[in-house]
Design a protein around this nucleic acid. Structure first.
Lengths: 336, 336
DNA sequence: CTGTTAGCGCATTCAT
DNA sequence: ATGAATGCGCTAACAG
């Protein structure tokens, strides 16, 4: 059988409570006691019982990853980073997809809360900007961390400077001689994409290029929406010489659209994406894109969340660095 | 505050035990009582407390997905299917990556068991054929379900007829006139790949084509390993006119390798993969491949596992159907 | 600094 | 077919 805290207490010759103190890093224990307890723990291979701990402590030791329909790869990376952080703190990760067909997001959320009673939540785009979800969490007074929120003020979590990243990417295109640069926007609900759009416009202004709304198409983050938006831009009387899509999947769709109409990438049109997902390296030509440390962002958001769970005011909005990667899909424009 | 079983009992005018009986579908309750309890549950919005239930019942209501390093997409699909099954049965899914660098798989497993004490485990390839993991689970008498095991005898879980699927795929190639068909094997530890390899050889035999070991290369399931193995086969004095890779990522690598040496797919060489992951439709040309209902397989494996958890002998090895998808990456060989 | 006592909310005996 | 008592393993409030 598994040993219990009582057994450890007996073996160490102390009370249960002292063992509890040591295990939970509480103050008011002499070093000698601490040592004795630790030795007993080792000897008996004691591991606390999660259920008992939760029941008595009125905590679940669960954090939930709440998501809508992000890209599979993005979700996977976030999840993997969160797992690392959870393991380090003996927390458990629960996956909470919400917004199933014909079901309101808050109804799904309610079910998750009734069942798991998570001590905290991590939100990723586009849910990180969803008013109904944010209101629900605020009402229930559940600590939560946001990843890449549109409005970081007063929130904890992790973000990067999306605008600056796009600015840098666009400057690279301009430096290569592009003046007609198209953009494919991400889903309107995705706040970070609005910063990417801002970066696009800022870069044009800095380069003294007039902003032309006709060069901007609406996408939905999917490969298929990239094909469609790509066709729309390439159908223009004077098509762009470069297209910046707000994520890699759409950029891959643009490349497909270009190929299908006999245009070579990057010879006839340069393409770039955002995220540096595996597809960026797997398609031909390899995609110029912006790398963000997605897995690390999942880990950091969880770390901040756990800090806040431990104490009211704790936790920050952490910033991470991006990296612009120029690969095969971009080159100077060809005179035609 | 949240209502407790005691409150429900009081509201329904019955004992706690009767409420417990109703909620757990135990026998020996009159219909009238059952109705009364259900009404009280509705009225009080009662939801059982997971921790209390686990503590008293000596069960964790947790199933673990134990994995090594499968393809991200595959893992995601399995996970998503498992989540569905878990939600339906009020179980919780715990992710258990094992075999971190310098850590033995069983050591990682031990940590997961000490912490979460899962009531059962789902294994996916290649771990589903890993002796050390299987032995560990058998020793600890933990119910587990296998997905796509090499040896299904005496196990529960879900599988498809990999050999038949490849046979069908190969027959399609042969019907299009291919006689020199290469194969890129998956990782040796991946049992299902051995059945795919068998399907490859069986198909050759049926078509009266001599098996040529020189046309078979070893891959590792990654895009990069596909490039390498593809180059190896295309470097042959008499290269194959078609190449069947044991998964889509490697097939994508073969296409890249072909392109880089100026060969057109499918004009100069046909390529096909296995799994029908998103990359199969995102690369150009779209990949001929075998679709397996991955997410459904995750769900079914969990359903069988939960059946076994509930009662000793229950649970089966379920079979699912494949589908061969001929797309752009295959055509009849060109005379050269 | 350390120990004692009393639940946390439920399932599980064993009565009736 | 139903109910009362007991305890799962731990933390929390209080006492020393």
């Amino acid at each position: 059988m598994r040993s219990r805290i009582e057994d450890v207490a007996a073996a160490a010759g102390v009370s249960m409570k002292t063992v509890s103190r040591v295990l939970n890093n509480e103050p008011n224990v002499r070093d000698e006691m601490r040592q004795r307890v630790m030795r007993a723990v080792e000897k008996l291979k004691y591991r606390p019982n999660l259920s008992a701990r939760s029941l008595a402590g009125q905590r679940s030791y669960v954090v939930a990853l709440v998501y809508n329909n992000p890209s599979r790869n993005y979700l996977m990376e976030i999840q993997s980073g969160m797992l690392d952080a959870c393991r380090d703190s003996h927390y458990n990760l629960v996956l909470a997809p919400v917004g199933s067909p014909r079901q309101r997001k808050t109804d799904d959320l309610k079910v998750v809360f009734e069942h798991f009673a998570p001590d905290g939540v991590v939100l990723i785009p586009p849910l990180t900007d969803d008013a109904s979800v944010l209101d629900f969490l605020d009402e229930h007074e559940v600590p939560f961390a946001c990843i890449a929120p549109k409005h970081p003020q007063g929130r904890i979590g992790v973000m990067m400077d999306e605008t600056a990243a796009v600015l840098e990417l666009m400057q690279g295109l301009v430096a290569r001689g592009h003046r007609r640069i198209g953009h494919i926007k991400g889903p309107p609900a995705h706040g970070a994409c609005q910063w990417r759009f801002k970066g696009y416009k800022d870069a044009l202004r800095q380069a003294g290029i007039d902003y032309d709304p006709g060069l901007v198409a609406q996408g939905a983050f999917s490969f298929e929406s990239g094909i469609e938006a790509g066709n729309q831009l390439l159908d223009l009387p004077r098509p762009p010489t470069a297209i910046f899509a707000a994520n890699d999947d759409m950029a891959a769709g643009v490349i497909r659209a270009a190929c299908q109409r006999g245009l070579a990438v990057p010879h006839d049109v340069s393409v770039c994406g955002f995220d540096d997902t595996p597809i960026a390296r797997h398609i031909y030509p390899a995609l110029t894109t912006v790398r963000q440390p997605t897995s690390e962002m999942g880990r950091l958001a969880t770390v901040e969340l756990l800090a806040r769970i431990r104490s009211q005011g704790a936790g920050d909005m952490v910033r991470v660095e991006h990296e612009v990667l120029f690969r095969e899909s971009t080159q100077p424009p060809t005179r035609r």
